[in-house]
């Protein structure tokens, strides 16, 4: 058995060397350049942040596409929903929110925004448009309603990533999905612990099966479960195919 405790550096050259803050345009430009290095970045071009002006906000059908791109767009769609949800939660805090709760929800908001913008940049011109969330069924003034919805979104996110992993062909994308899904699982556990502190709910028997496993759910079932929260009709029949 190898006893030394050194760990191998598994990541990038020049990590931590770049101290300048990339603005969005610079980031996207460097993202485009990275294509030649065989990285995640798919598109060489960059779009404006604006949604397609020809598409009105509601009632459209958005298809996620096929193959690995379809899977990444699927993740991008879910991250858009989560980011929009927590942005609203932090902007209009529920009655009686504590500082600790606000700090947690703000952290989660930032993670989801980072995930969303990461997928958007990585997909480039293959990215689906910005979706229009529909949170009309959620009473953002009530703690129970907000945390209940957060729990649903996080558990759904975990199940979605778990179910999408095997659809990916490129191991680099698989690793990226793995890096994100465990963060979603951390969110799910913390939200569940806010709802029922110090209980078994953080990894409750309602979600974890008799083999000690989380759910893994196929895109069609996830899209059907979240369709009430999106104004557009999102179709994903060819995701991963």
């Amino acid at each position: 058995m190898n006893k030394h405790t050194e760990t191998k550096k598994t990541h990038g050259k020049g990590e931590g060397e770049i101290t300048s803050v990339f603005n969005r345009r610079l980031f996207l430009r460097s993202a485009g350049l990275a294509t030649s290095l065989g990285t995640i970045v798919i598109a060489a071009g960059c779009n404006d942040d604006d949604d397609d002006p020809m598409i009105p906000g509601t009632g459209d059908t958005v298809d996620l596409g096929s193959g690995d791109i379809g899977v990444l767009n699927y993740a991008y769609a879910l991250e858009q929903l989560e980011a929009a949800f927590y942005t609203q939660v932090v902007a209009t805090p529920y009655a009686g929110i504590t500082d600790a709760e606000k700090a947690i929800l703000t952290d989660i908001r930032d993670h989801e925004i980072i995930h969303r913008d990461f997928f958007k940049a990585a997909l480039g011109d293959k990215a689906i448009k910005g979706l229009t969330p529909n949170f009309s069924g959620i009473d953002f003034t009530k703690k129970d309603a907000v945390l209940g919805a957060a729990k649903l979104f996080e558990d759904t996110g975990v199940a979605a990533y778990n179910g999408a992993g095997k659809l990916l062909k490129d191991p680099n994308y698989l690793l990226l999905a793995g890096k994100i899904v465990s963060v979603e699982a951390r969110h799910a556990a913390v939200i569940r612990d806010l709802i029922k502190p110090k209980s078994t709910d953080f990894a409750g028997d309602d979600i974890i099966d008799a083999n000690g496993m989380d759910k893994a759910v196929a895109p069609a079932d996830i899209l059907s479960a979240v369709k009430g929260y999106v104004k557009e009709t999102v179709t994903g029949a060819n995701v991963g195919k």
């Binding site: 990339f22 990275a34 990461f118």
Partner: peptide, 24 residues
């Protein structure tokens, strides 16, 4: 992430960016 240094992404802090991705 994905071969790109994402420092400054979405104008978020380094803290938030490292939190958003778990590493293998």
């Amino acid at each position: 992430q994905g071969g790109v240094n994402i420092k400054g992404l979405a104008s978020k802090t380094d803290a938030a960016i490292t939190e958003a991705f778990d590493e293998p």
